[in-house]
Nucleic acid binder design. Structure first.
Length: 250
DNA sequence: CGTCGCGCAATGGTTACCTCA
DNA sequence: ACTGAGGTAACCATTGCGCGA
């Protein structure tokens, strides 16, 4: 069950780190593990652990210029407790609708007021836009820990006037966004790696050609100075030891 | 004033783990 | 000790609403 992600996380193996305390440190660790030794930090994209990361990742934030509300108040979240669960045994899983009636901020004189609540409940899900404040609080909480235990969920829900399920969904979606962003970062990183390697490959080929040409010259071996370029790894600047053999001759 | 595209809240399905009979 | 059922909590892909362009 180890959530080690030792490989490049691009692959995003579908290991579910269940019941693991996932933290932002976890994300940072993940990024660190990915980094090959020879890349300069300045080349690296912004890490999720970077304070600026989120701002960068979600520049627009959640745009709510008006207080959201939800007019539907069908069945209450009888369960506060189990968002996801149980429904597998009950028909239609969680068909419960999240009503925000208890949230004063969410009592918008609904623009969609034309429809009756009954209609709402029956066949359409209503969507609310979280207010800026709500988003900010959730964001702050997410920054501290990107998963919630039931207690925290309840507390946050109460604080924000949302349903626990809504808080949970927000965190789920937020994690998905983070992951997507991380994938983009990983892609960018790999792209750069590829470019660097391509460039290095090109350079080495050129060098091989030059050496071949030199070899053909009569006094090559006598005049040859130490082939520093062959003993140093160009990218990481360390001795490459017995370098991979480059066949100079036929 | 439509409509189109995008962001994101919400849904449904799946899986892993835990508890208990 | 083993096993199967039920519950819980995480993940994912997808849906569809809200809203700005």
């Amino acid at each position: 069950m180890g959530d080690t992600d030792l490989g490049l996380s691009l692959s995003f193996p579908h290991h579910h780190h269940h019941h693991l305390p996932t933290t932002s440190a976890h994300a940072a660790l993940r990024l660190n593990l990915m980094m090959p030794p020879c890349l300069h930090p300045s080349q690296l994209p912004l890490a999720p652990s970077d304070p600026n990361y989120k701002a960068q990742a979600f520049p627009c934030g959640i745009d709510v210029n008006r207080p959201p509300s939800v007019s539907e108040e069908c069945e209450d979240d009888a369960g506060v407790s189990s968002p996801n669960s149980t429904m597998s045994t009950i028909s239609g899983k969680r068909s419960e609708r999240e009503s925000n009636a208890e949230d004063p901020e969410n009592e918008r004189a609904s623009s969609r007021g034309a429809m009756s609540d009954e209609d709402d409940c029956e066949n359409s899900r209503k969507k609310l836009r979280l207010s800026k404040d709500q988003s900010a609080v959730l964001e702050g909480s997410f920054r501290e820990h990107n998963t919630l235990n039931p207690k925290q969920k309840l507390a946050l829900a109460k604080q924000l006037g949302l349903r626990p399920r809504q808080v949970e969904v927000w965190f789920q979606n937020r994690r998905a966004r983070t992951k997507l962003k991380q994938t983009e970062v990983d892609c960018e990183f790999l792209k750069r790696c590829y470019e660097n390697l391509t460039e290095e490959n090109r350079r080495l080929h050129k060098e091989v050609q030059e050496l071949r040409a030199l070899k053909l010259s009569p006094h090559f071996f006598m005049r040859m100075s130490p082939p520093t370029t062959l003993t140093m790894c160009p990218s990481c600047q360390r001795d490459s030891g017995p370098s991979p053999r480059i066949a100079l001759g036929p």
